[in-house]
Amino acid sequence: MALVGLEELRAAQRRIAGVAVRTPLMPAPWAADGNRRLWLKPENLQPTGAFKIRGAYNRLAALSGPERARGVVAQSSGNHAQAVAYAAQLLGIKAVIVMPDTSPAVKVANTRSFGAEVVLVSPHERDTVPAELSERGGFVWVPPYDDPYIIAGQGTVGLEIGEDAPDELDTVLVPVSGGGLISGTAAALKLTTPGVRVIGVEPELAADAQESLRTGERAIWPVERTYRTIADGLRTPAVGELPFEHLQAYVDDIVTVTEEQIRSTVAVLARRGRLVAEPSGAVATAAYLHHAQELGGRVFAAVVSGGNLEPKLLSELLAA
């Protein structure tokens, strides 16, 4: 499979303009440590609360007329679900979203609020039911990460970081789940901002991507293993096939953070950064706060990938 190139990334940037927010690169002076500095890319400020709108809208906007008439089906634990539902609503396309029954209620409710039909299934069925619905109902399947349009759309995050970054930027930290965000972001940065390292971050309880990159073979973790982490958006059992090729080509390393580090970073981002980040969205910042010295960089950017979490959970994490 061909890697996403600069032409596809630029086309995605034009396609999503005016729909996805061009989020700022925000300084985080409260996180400075000696000569080490941090910038934040707050994708939690997107209309659907996460970066996923970039890839979802890029994919749906590129559908042909006959494909739009068929409607779309997608699977997601929440953020891709909301993004596809929102993009489909904007474009007048019917959307059916398959979500695991363990998804946060706020994500299910938000997805339905955009007019999508939600089908709740067990975590084991999340990735098989969409194919059945696509075959039975004729829907166009919109995967969450294993698609060049999705990767290109998410890669606009990297284009924006490259355009806005200070000259001293040397390290970009990106959450990893199925690999769409880090694939596109890494491709964009490596093709436009040579010399910048791209490091993925995932929970140590769902470290299939780290294992995959370091062994050179896609690791598949059972859902019983990945569902231990509080970071519900990063429980995907394996990176996609196309994202894995991008990881091998463009990603310098993948590191992990603990559950306690994720939890405490949600609170730090809220108190010090004034940003509401879900656990999945906090992992990149957690890597900086707890591992910056061993990562070896001086000027970091961390992607805060989303902010969709239950108010009760946020309250608990702030009170801890």
Rank of each mutant, 00 (worst) to 15 (best):
Y86T: 00
A12K: 02
V172E: 12
L3A: 12
V196H: 01
L60A: 13
L289M: 10
P194I: 04
R274D: 01
A292W: 07
P47L: 13
L133D: 05
A17V: 00
F244P: 08
A81K: 01
V142P: 01
E278W: 03
N79A: 09
Q248N: 02
R70Y: 14
G162F: 11
Q89P: 07
S77L: 06
R54G: 10
V96E: 07
A231P: 00
P148A: 07
G273W: 02
G5M: 04
L309C: 05
P279H: 02
A50N: 03
D167N: 08
V129P: 05
L234W: 02
V257A: 03
H246F: 09
M26L: 15
V304P: 00
V72S: 13
H291K: 11
R197T: 08
R15M: 11
G195P: 00
V239S: 08
G18W: 14
P222I: 09
V119L: 10
S77F: 02
L295S: 05
G216P: 08
S134P: 00
V157E: 03
L234G: 07
R272I: 00
A131N: 04
P47A: 12
P166E: 15
D146G: 09
I254T: 15
K94A: 15
F244K: 08
S183W: 09
A282G: 04
G195N: 11
G306T: 13
D252K: 09
H80C: 08
E224N: 14
A88D: 03
A56M: 10
V118P: 01
I97Y: 01
T285Y: 02
G180F: 15
T236D: 09
A85V: 05
G162C: 11
V73M: 02
V108F: 11
R36C: 14
R70G: 12
E211P: 00
A105K: 08
M99D: 11
G78H: 05
G179D: 13
R271V: 11
V176D: 07
G55L: 07
G178P: 07
A81N: 08
V4C: 10
D208P: 00
Q210H: 03
V73R: 01
V118I: 08
E294R: 11
T226G: 15
K312Y: 12
E294I: 04
E310A: 14
Y149I: 11
R68D: 06
A186P: 06
I182Y: 05
V108P: 06
L213M: 12
G158M: 06
T171P: 00
S134T: 11
G297Q: 04
P130G: 13
A105W: 05
F300L: 03
G179C: 15
M26W: 12
Y86D: 05
G180V: 14
S77C: 15
L169I: 10
E211W: 01
G216F: 13
P194D: 14
V223I: 03
S280N: 01
D127L: 15
G65D: 13
V239L: 09
R68M: 15
S212K: 08
I262D: 07
H290F: 13
T229I: 02
D146I: 04
K107A: 15
L25K: 11
L213S: 09
E8D: 13
A95T: 00
P237K: 01
A249L: 09
L169S: 07
P222A: 12
E278N: 12
V304D: 06
P222G: 02
K52I: 08
N110I: 04
G297P: 01
L6C: 09
A20I: 14
S212C: 05
E117H: 12
V84E: 04
